[in-house]
Amino acid sequence: MNKNKFILFCILPSIVILLIVVIFPMVGAINYSLQDKSLRFLEGDYIGFQNYIDMFEDRRFINALKISLYWELITVIGSLLLAILVSIILFEYSNKNYRILLAIILIMPIMLPKVSAGLIWRFMLSPVMGLVNAPLISLNLNPIEYLASPKLALFSVAFVDIWQWGLFFGVILLFLLETLPRDLIDAAKIDKVKKWQLHYFITFPMLKGSLITIALIKAIESLRSFDLIFTMTKGGPGITTETLDLYAYQQGIGLRGEISYASAMSVAMVIITIVIFTFIWKRAQKS
């Protein structure tokens, strides 16, 4: 076997399978999105772009678009801030000998299936049996309905996401801080630079590239909000936590079974995400 044949033999199966498994549903989605199929009436007629037109007049779709945007902003910024805080705490206050043990404990939340994390936090936040409300109740105050309040629900679910990802990225940032040249940090310490100054002016600017990559990874992962939100609130109360994937699921699979309309939404989602992330990724690679 010559070299080129060997390379082809190694790479080709992955490309063929991926193309089939990705292109099939995409062609399927575009095809369905131009019809009026539903799970109850599988025989559909072609209706042109009607589903796409309906989408932008659908207030629930616009709401989902808005909630998805909030979700992205809150979870990306929240996990990054928590991660920076956690990494500085670990770097400054933890004994080097125990760091790996600490890291193991701190990445436990991210290892939890979203379903487990969601159930565990529903239990924690419950007004009748949760740990979070216990101090309020013992002071004879009213418990806070974290998941049933339209104002708090989105933040409460996002908090769980940040709890999982922020701690994980905190550990990653700690490992990255450890790769920085030690003499630089020691020199700063001899000069009696304050801890926050050291990190604000020296270490984190050196990690700028990694921070951007982490933010990007988190932005991509935050698009997969379904598992956690579905477990914790199913999009409620009302539609206050209904992101795009939840709404598409409710339309296409849940009660409605409007598979054509949901397909139009899927196509829109794919186009939006691929365009935005390809653009951002290529820009980030250049800089």
Binding site: F24, I220, L244, A248, S266, V267
Partner: peptide
């Protein structure tokens, strides 16, 4: 290309796959 597979929203794969 391999990375961009991760950009695909899972719901956008799941819905057409139901029909298929």
């Amino acid at each position: 290309f391999y990375l961009s597979i991760r950009f695909m929203p899972p719901v956008a794969i799941a819905i057409p796959f139901i029909g298929i």
